[in-house]
Design a binder for these strands. Structure first.
Lengths: 336, 336
DNA sequence: TTGAAAGCGCTAACAA
DNA sequence: TTGTTAGCGCTTTCAA
């Protein structure tokens, strides 16, 4: 069986393709009767419109891109859930692109979007991304872009984050309240503004408690899991911290691994808070006190903003800076 | 700046659009010189081809669909990684669709693919999917489809699974060796062939050990996390199993939760093996003995098969039944 | 309320 | 080696 086209419907019904098109799109220019006739035949012949013909003509693809560093991370996985929920509701399709924390790859992906392949972009940038030299600024003039979680602060477009600074502040204060006096912070990257926010919240808490801000208490990591693990070991060995803030899920896991290797007992010798959405956090040994980010909500909100802008050109994306608070979930890794 | 098209290049260079098109596609019909001229101008003007025009004309979209029940599951997340790696290498785009274990939604998604939106499909079906009454059979005549993990055995197309039966056999035997005599199996669904495989491996191990096959030792679950948790509690309370095989990651987590609630001590009172790719399995309390599925490899293999078929129509997809073995990783949840 | 016609940007026969 | 031409399937003026 040939693919059914609008032309075939037109011939069968002795109507023009224009009429068919309008009827299928429920145009009110069309009489109720013909509309019904057309739609019935369409259903009967199992007509499915060719999306690419439509996209070509309308210059819109009903497709958005989600660009993220990785998918095997419960934050991003949940965020995708949120995005997908909204996209499905709006009848949009979701292209997914992984950057693997590599800004070159990210760049290449973004370049492709010049083509009109997608109507809008949801992105959480890599640890290496520096917005300035980034095609992102250019792209944002052609397409609506919404950042979620890992934003570029320099770019005047919508951003959905959690309350990174305050969450880190609260987490650090919690450690202090639990008796920690020498608290280290494991940072994912110098580049990321959300990490800078977290550091700043951490510093604020130390200052308020009158604790010194030792020079090497903040250490930085890359995308190299094995290298990171080694560096965590090194850091823990050198500094003899009594408290740790791990700013990513993977780093939190590395702390468990390092403690196992080094024979450091949590929480007695080291108390740990992790930024993490791990569903297993409560079953870890010891259960992990987490800064639980509203991943699903963030994805959903970001997508909602994007679709609002897609629906209405004049929607001021640049003014949308949504912050959704995280929750400190206290467990055994910070027990006294 | 207007969008640069092939026509604009043609005018600037005083050539025909046909020549431009061929030059850009590195056709050998074109002289080296004009090819260079064209490509240079293209680069200079930052020409980006319109993918939808090309798709419409060529009837191929350089896009594949990945249809999965959920993304917040380490198996599927890793599988996506594998798929994405191959897709990126081949220059394909990846549309992602979540069915949320709902075969109606799955159906709706699959229906859309009649449109030619994608060139091929990678799918892991829902717990409810019954292949027979399923549009899948119909679709598979129009598009190459590769199943991974959750396959439809009835459909004559490529399948990538792990050695479900044997892995379950080994896992069960392991429990028996560790002294279990009353082993329950938590099954995700009656419908899924991979679950039936796992059950059959489990039964085989019991039989070989001369253990009875008690009627309610296999319990079935749905997509309702809360409901499942309750049912797990109920099951554990009623049966007083000394060993459990959890056939999905989520069910394994539910066992931890249920044990906590019921005050059952793992591994003393209950030994547990979970089919799971949780990166935190080794840090759980107790660390979880897992059947670790080769998720990344399975995704990669499935994608590779799909692309092979895309490249070569005559590639006999139906004969590709790849099985990649899982690994039993023994940890404290099955300690004596 | 319907239809004729043009065209979205590209590719592929076929001709030159 | 290059160009002419037609057309992928749809939407959208504009005219009837």
């Amino acid at each position: 069986m040939e693919n059914v086209t609008i032309r075939m419907l037109a011939e069968k019904l002795q109507l023009s393709t224009a009429t068919i098109s309008k009827a299928l799109n429920n145009s009110h220019e069309i009489s109720e009767e013909t509309r019904k006739r057309v739609q019935e035949l369409a259903k009967e012949l199992n007509y499915v419109p060719n999306p690419y013909a439509s996209s070509l003509r309308k210059k819109s693809s009903k497709t958005i891109a989600v660009v993220i560093p990785e998918v095997a991370d419960s934050f991003f996985a949940e965020a995708i859930n949120g995005i997908e929920a909204v996209a499905k509701e709006k009848g949009y399709h979701v292209l997914i692109y992984l950057t693997h924390e590599n800004s070159q790859q990210e760049q290449a992906i973004l370049n492709d979007f010049q083509s009109g392949r997608v109507d809008g972009i949801l992105i959480s940038v890599t640890m290496e991304t520096a917005a300035s030299e980034h095609g992102l600024a250019h792209l944002s003039k052609e397409l609506p872009i919404v950042f979620f979680d890992r934003v570029c602060e320099e770019l005047p477009t919508a951003r959905v984050t959690t309350n990174d600074k305050e969450a880190a502040f609260i987490a650090t204060r919690h450690l202090i309240e639990r008796g920690c006096r020498n608290i280290g912070l494991l940072a994912a990257s110098q580049q990321l503004s959300i990490i800078r926010q977290r550091i700043s919240g951490y510093e604020k808490a130390l200052k308020e408690a009158g604790l010194p801000l030792s020079p090497n208490a903040v250490t930085y990591y890359t995308n190299d899991t094995v290298g990171n693990y080694k560096k965590v070991c090194e850091t823990l060995r050198q500094h003899r911290f009594d408290g740790i803030i791990a700013t990513t899920e993977k780093l939190a896991t590395s702390v468990y691994e390092a403690c196992e290797t080094l024979g450091i007992r949590m929480p007695d010798e080291l108390k740990v808070v992790g930024f993490s959405n791990l569903s297993t956090a409560r079953f870890l040994q010891p259960s992990l006190t987490t800064v639980a980010q509203p991943a699903f909500e963030m994805g959903k909100t970001a997508a909602t903003l994007l679709f609002r802008s897609l629906k209405n050109n004049h929607f001021p994306l640049a003014h949308q800076q949504v912050e959704i608070p995280s929750q400190l979930v206290i467990r055994q890794s910070t027990a006294v």
